[in-house]
């Protein structure tokens, strides 16, 4: 097509934007780690769907040649690696995601009274953000299939959360009804985050990436008011008295 109008010279615009990515850190032996990952995926199907994942290879420290195989194995599980973080690795093959340097450990700085777009729930549960704090108050029940993502603070649910629902919070999560879905607190690197609920029927509880599935919880904690917190890298589920 021939354009009659004079071509306007418009400069190319680059904008710096920051995103939250999940970081996966494989550990040796890799076979065991993949098995644990499979177990996790089985418990939270669809968790990685459409989520950016950065592969942190500093712990595993594999040979450059093995990285390709690992990326493929993750892709088979529906995990798309957006970038690779590895100190001292000079170059990766052209088919691999780019190397990421200078990543900061993701402790989210407290943002004051800022209601930015990504603080809204990923699916439209009726949610109002209180401008005075970074907590997200959800007044309606969280339904099966809904996912609430709030990386900048606590999430407070006044009703129940359904089996098959998911709450991911940077801070703590409080559920004043029955917790039946999955809850991931401290998801952006906060080990101090806790999960509280009036009645524990949870499918999965996680703090700072450490998780415990319903199967691994003591039967005594089911149906009771509980809190879950991280102690020496283990999720403790304790009765709330």
């Amino acid at each position: 097509m021939t354009s009659v109008a004079p071509v306007q010279k418009k400069s190319v615009r680059f904008r710096a934007r920051s995103f939250v990515a999940f970081s996966l850190t494989p550990e040796a032996p890799l076979e065991d780690w993949l098995q644990r990952l499979d177990h996790w995926i089985e418990n939270s199907p669809g968790f990685f769907a459409g989520r950016p994942v950065v592969l942190d290879l500093n712990t595993l420290d594999p040979d450059a040649g093995d990285v390709q195989g690992l990326v493929v194995q993750l892709a088979d599980r529906g995990i798309r690696v957006y970038a690779i973080e590895a100190d001292g690795m000079e170059a990766l093959g052209p088919g691999l995601p780019p190397l990421l340097v200078g990543a900061k450990k993701t402790i989210f700085e407290e943002r004051q009274a800022k209601s930015d777009e990504d603080a809204k729930p990923a699916s439209p549960a009726k949610a109002d953000e209180t401008p005075a704090s970074n907590s997200l108050m959800i007044r309606s029940p969280v339904r099966s299939g809904q996912s609430i993502f709030h990386p900048h603070g606590d999430v407070i649910v006044l009703g129940s959360t359904a089996s098959g629902s998911e709450i991911i919070a940077g801070g703590s999560v409080h559920v004043y009804g029955t917790l039946r879905g999955s809850v991931l607190a401290g998801a952006t690197g906060n080990r101090e985050a806790r999960i509280f609920c009036r009645k524990n029927e949870a499918e999965l509880l996680a703090v700072d990436g450490w998780y415990r599935t319903a199967e691994d919880m003591e039967p005594a904690s089911r149906g009771k008011p509980i809190q879950a917190f991280l102690e020496n890298g283990v999720i403790q589920v304790a009765a709330l008295n």
């Binding site: 339904r143 359904a162 089996s163």
Partner: peptide
């Protein structure tokens, strides 16, 4: 249980 969970999902869609 399966019917109830599916109903819960539908309620979420009705609300959105």
């Amino acid at each position: 249980v399966s019917s109830v969970r599916d109903s819960d999902r539908i309620i979420g869609l009705l609300d959105s």
